[in-house]
């Protein structure tokens, strides 16, 4: 009988001890969760700051990209990881483009004290960088003028394809001068509004001279596509006529781990949240 009472007492002690242990463990777990939440909360403000900065950055990037695409009429396409196409009309009227850029810059900097846009180069020469190949695409005189230049920093161009569309002048001839032997495929296709089409393609040596001339009927000046010796395969396209011609250059590159991209110069957009110690410098990616 006493054993039964003793057993009952033991059960009571065990139950009490069990509840105390369960409660203590629960409390300990909750304190751990609370501690973790406090740590996470301490990181929340910087994370929200980074989110706000990212929002602003991507929207400014989107605005600049839209202005370039709409007002310059340039076309960009990276259909695969190693080929990029950049097309535009040369010469072109760049006034609307520059006005839109200036207006956007003023609007952004007036409303966001923490933002600084560096658009001097963009307004002047509208240069682009092709990564990861370190190739630049620019308008050497000034954007809107009659020429474009594609400059590699090494002989890393695998192919050049040039498409010319003349919507107002009749194309009379396409003459290929210079290198016709080498290991870099190069092609030129020229069409006009009358349906004339001229196509020529050769393997070329980019360390030698290539001079392709597109002549227009009843016009004094030509469109030239050139590669000069000792310029690491720099491609020049110049339309010496006043009437604009659409030129699209497709550049092929060797396969690298990073896919090809086209961007404006680095540090085009700078956002500085000094109170949070956040500074973001970046550029505009076109493709």
């Amino acid at each position: 009988m006493r054993e039964k009472v003793k057993g009952m007492t033991n059960r009571g002690v065990l139950f009490t001890a069990g509840m105390v242990i369960l409660g203590a463990v629960t409390l300990a777990l909750v304190l751990v969760v609370v501690e973790q939440r406090q740590q996470a909360n301490a990181q929340l403000i910087p994370m929200l700051g980074l989110d706000r900065q990212y929002d602003l950055f991507t929207s400014i990037e989107g605005g600049l990209r839209e202005i370039i695409l709409v007002e310059s009429g340039m076309e960009f396409n990276a259909s695969n990881a190693t080929t990029v196409m950049i097309g535009e009309s040369i010469p072109s009227n760049a006034d609307a483009f520059r006005a839109a850029m200036a207006g956007f810059e003023d609007f952004v900097e007036d409303n966001f004290a923490e933002v600084q846009l560096n658009l001097i180069d963009v307004n002047d020469n509208l240069p682009f960088f092709i990564s990861p190949y370190n190739v630049s695409f620019t308008h050497p005189d000034q954007y809107g003028q009659d020429r474009i230049t594609i400059t590699p920093t090494a002989l890393n161009v695998k192919s050049y394809g040039i498409f010319i569309n003349s919507s107002k002048m009749e194309i009379e001839s396409l003459t290929w001068g210079g290198s016709k032997s080498g290991n870099v495929p190069m092609s030129v296709r020229a069409v006009d509004y009358l349906g004339n089409e001229f196509v020529e393609a050769h393997q070329v040596d980019l360390t030698k001279n290539v001079a392709i001339t597109i002549a227009f009927a009843d016009e004094d000046d030509d469109l030239l596509v050139q590669v000069r010796p000792n310029e690491l395969g720099t491609l020049r396209v110049e339309n010496h006529e006043e009437e604009s011609v659409f030129v699209a250059v497709t550049i092929g590159f060797p396969l690298m781990s990073e896919p090809v991209s086209v961007t404006l110069p680095p540090d085009t957009i700078r956002i500085n949240y000094s109170s949070m110690g956040i500074e973001h410098r970046g550029t505009v990616r076109m493709v």
């Binding site: 929002d55 929207s59 989107g62 709409v70 609307a96």
Partner: peptide
């Protein structure tokens, strides 16, 4: 709260900017 800027395109040209 957060803010974004955007360019307003109308009739194939940039007509305004907004926030």
């Amino acid at each position: 709260s957060g803010r974004r800027v955007f360019a307003v395109t109308d009739g194939g040209e940039i007509s305004d900017y907004g926030m």
